[in-house]
Simulated scan of single mutants.
Amino acid sequence: MNALKPTHQLCKNRHKQTGLAALEFIICLPVLLMLAVLLIDVSRAFIQYTEINKALQNGVRYAVVDTYGTLDFGSIADGAKIQNMVVYGKPTATGQDKKVLGYLEPSDIIITQPTNETKEVMLSATYTYVPIFSSLPFSDSSLAFTIGASTKMRTSP
């Protein structure tokens, strides 16, 4: 008879814990979802930064290479063509062309001309990244932030 008593006590404790796993899951679910959204959002920001950086690299390469007809090592391509190369992926673009980077305008690209001292052309761009959830709940503060990227290349030896 004494041998059955611990088993009966164990069954009684098991009934007290019914639903405890579901309660723990309900408590942890919002935290896990926020972490997942944060991870996705940081990844999106990093991908956009990488896209802009690669587009700027293509633009600065075009600026240095497309100097046909000039013998001056310090000259670069036309500024508007460089900006179009970064945003549209081609030097001549119309308003109907699809942008390679939808969140960037040609006017956002800043071109720094080479000088006799630096002999480098530099392209830079800044844009405002808007996260998936653009504001905090119960608050008017925005979570958008500015990301900047730049690249440079030598024009002459």
Rank of each mutant, 00 (worst) to 15 (best):
T128S: 07
T94V: 04
T151C: 05
V86Y: 00
S156I: 08
G69D: 00
I27D: 04
N84D: 02
G59L: 04
V42Y: 03
Q48S: 09
G95I: 09
S135F: 06
V100C: 02
N2V: 08
L39N: 11
D78L: 06
E24C: 14
D108E: 03
L104N: 02
H8L: 14
L123Q: 07
S43L: 09
V86I: 10
G102K: 10
Y68P: 00
E24L: 15
A149P: 08
L23S: 13
T7F: 15
A63G: 11
V100N: 04
A93I: 10
P157K: 06
M153A: 15
Y129M: 03
T112R: 09
K5C: 04
K12H: 12
Q17E: 14
S135Y: 12
Q48E: 05
L20A: 12
V42S: 07
N116M: 12
N58D: 07
A77M: 06
P137R: 05
P30C: 03
K5N: 09
P114G: 12
S150N: 10
I110W: 00
A45V: 07
L39I: 09
E24Q: 14
D66T: 15
E24R: 10
L4M: 07
D108V: 05
E120Y: 13
I132C: 01
T128N: 05
I147P: 14
M34S: 10
T155E: 00
A21M: 12
K12M: 11
L10H: 09
A3P: 00
V60S: 05
P6D: 00
A63H: 13
L32H: 08
N84E: 01
V37I: 14
T128F: 00
Q113V: 10
L39Y: 07
D78W: 07
H15L: 13
T50L: 08
S150G: 12
L123Y: 05
T92A: 14
V87P: 07
A77T: 08
D140F: 08
C28E: 00
D66V: 13
E105Q: 14
P91M: 04
L32G: 12
Q113F: 12
L32P: 11
P30S: 04
M153K: 14
P131E: 01
L71K: 12
S150Y: 08
Y129P: 05
K119Y: 02
V121Y: 03
G148R: 07
L10E: 02
I110Y: 04
K119M: 06
A21G: 07
E120Q: 15
A36Y: 04
C28M: 15
Y127N: 06
S75V: 12
I82Y: 01
S75R: 13
A21W: 08
F138I: 14
A3C: 10
E24D: 12
L23N: 06
T7H: 11
D78N: 15
D78S: 10
D108F: 05
